[in-house]
Write a protein that binds this DNA or RNA. Structure first.
Lengths: 218, 218, 218, 218
DNA sequence: GATGAATGAGGATTCATTCAT
DNA sequence: AATGAATGAATCCTCATTCAT
């Protein structure tokens, strides 16, 4: 029996179009939230970017906050999965180089993500905390533990280890967050493919320098 | 000769009190801008924090924008002077360790500064660009040049050098910007004196690892 | 073919109601701008008069300035068309009496118009100038030319003619602008139908006196 | 005995300077009120024009309203005296031409006055009414009476007479109020001495045309 | 007499949200 | 699903005024 027109099947054109719209809204919102932060982004801007009127946004997301959460979730999800996979792997088979490579690959396609996260980090605030408990906390907890059990960890005192992990994290994220300023200063775009390759290499070397004994595939 | 009543002397009570108030406004604004960014900070919040009514703010700063610029200028000034001094020093007498120490000392007293700068960096925007040309640009220009002529520069290809400098910069700034998130996750405050000592040490080691031949006083 | 729901037909209830509201806003604004001028009129007053909240005004006009411009355009349009028609008519068929009659008829229905124009005239300012070039300038230019080619023009030196035209204009407008003061002084309302008839007659006689040879139908 | 420094005589430099300041404030306020009306003029503007700070204005006038009233009084006084003198003169010795000449002379020196009055007229409102009763009312009352008893009055029906007087008044005032618009349109300044001579002449002719039997000295 | 600082009231405008269509 | 209209709350900012100096 074909789906009744009143109950459209999961991928009827209707539904597809609706999801497409939601996706377009997420895209627009992601770019704007990344550039201007939550407070600096108005639904008016988002709507204009999607070429919709504001109330239409409410057909897809129940509030600005929910839209923001959705943007964050969509962006952060893949990264967390990757990290979780890495953390879960047996310690011998962890290859730092591969993770760096794959994280960079994700960020290349989602260049807004680091800025988005950085905005949240700076706010350090209420909107973030709920998501933290669920997503970031375990990963960063694992990261510390990983580092502790990692071969090269001997170089750092236990209470220094989290700080070193944070340092690496900031080097990674920083390439993206610093890009617009760099461009304003020098005219160069740090986010071209060539530059991103450089950054990947630098990141590898930074990790190699900080954790001399961690295996890293060349 | 007594000061004419028409031209109040430089330290008339008026002036002194006014300057004090302006300073208090700057303090309040700095904290709020750092935490919530420009768009997320309302003059209402600032005024409440200084225990003034909103219009009084306008007796000291002509607009929110001007207040923001003043906050930025006051905060960034000393750091830039320090860096400029370092950049101007003859290359043999440059001691990376000393600079790290002194930058950290400044940031310890102005803990909002890195967040402030980070917000601006993320915005990458119009409010920043004018200041950039004047202040940051020459320093970062010098930083690149410094690194090139530095003994350890040989380790990096010329086009990689700016990226490495940026990496160090991000490690430094990142300790401060990541602090609130870290606290929300783990309950630990990264900005205690003990922790900041750790970070200083880590930063030195990062620099040592990245520029193995740069002299660094222990 | 039924109208698509995405493109509401020209007289959807939405549109009709919206236009009605816009018209009511224009009415209220016209009265207030006429009485108190631009600076003296607050959107709060306008909104109160239409029984709306202030932000609703922005659903119909993007700014106070735009509302003002719309008021002016709506009011001045018909008069200018009338004058343009008169100016375009062949000189023999021009009947000063008829124009006076018809201008008075318009102003009777739009009694705020003269005050509105007078406010603008006094400001002599930036808000006016753009509209002037487009609307008023050509008409007044024609007015001068008309007067020159008119039979009675011989009475006045060419450089006096514009001044005489202005004089007539001021007599006409003055009846309306002076009315509130007159009422405050004497208690009489100059804008009753009877009084307006008088004024029309006086205006005719003034024109007859100033241009003795211009044909004027009785 | 010379005036003690504690009790400065009426025209001590102290007092003189004070009065001078008040006069300068009046000048600035007159120009601004004339151009922008009461609501459109801020004390900030006035103070800036006198190169004082706002609170200093309050040393000379107790409120914005009082300043406005003072501007009006200072400007209108001479005109009213002139008219009063004319009205009081025995009817045979009245010479319309002389009055026109002298009113124009006053307005030439006080070009803001007509605009000022026109603003008030348009407001027709509360700020005006108190002054009206005292100043303008009697004069206009007399004007009507004068016109009635004047030789040429026979031309007009009694109830038309006030309207005719108003017409003349508007011709006179209109030259000044229309000037800025005219200048914006044509680039010509209507308030040059030559133009004002023309206007005086036109005004005489208008009066002559409207009151053919009124004596008017050539 | 002049002014810096402070402020209550109000200015225009934006924002996120709701609802009827 | 899309949108015009409406709105309470909040935005930045201006204004007239006061007061201590």
């Amino acid at each position: 029996m074909p789906a009744s027109p009143l109950l459209p099947s999961l991928d009827s054109p209707h539904r597809r179009k609706g999801e497409q719209t939601a996706e377009r809204i997420l895209d627009a919102a992601e770019a704007l939230f990344a550039e201007r932060g939550y407070a600096g982004t108005s639904l008016r801007d988002v709507a204009a970017r999607v070429e919709l009127r504001i109330p239409s946004l409410y057909n897809h997301f129940p509030s600005k906050d929910a839209l923001y959460a959705a943007v964050l979730a969509r962006g952060i999800g893949p990264v967390l999965e990757l990290l979780a996979g890495f953390a879960a792997a047996p310690s011998e088979s962890r290859d730092a180089g591969a993770v760096i490579e794959r994280v960079m690959a994700i960020l290349r396609r989602h260049r807004n993500l680091p800025k988005l996260i950085q905005h949240e980090t700076l706010a350090g605030g209420p909107r973030l905390t709920p998501m933290l408990r669920e997503w970031i906390a375990p990963v960063f907890g694992r990261a510390g533990e990983m580092a502790e059990t990692a071969p090269g960890a001997g170089r750092w005192a236990p209470e220094q280890l989290p700080l070193v992990v944070i340092a690496v994290y900031n080097v990674l994220v920083g390439f993206f967050t610093f890009a617009p300023l760099y461009q304003a200063l020098n005219g160069d775009d740090l986010l071209t493919d060539a530059r991103l390759d450089h950054q990947t290499r630098i990141l590898r070397e930074v990790v190699a320098a900080l954790f001399p004994e961690v295996p890293i595939e060349r």
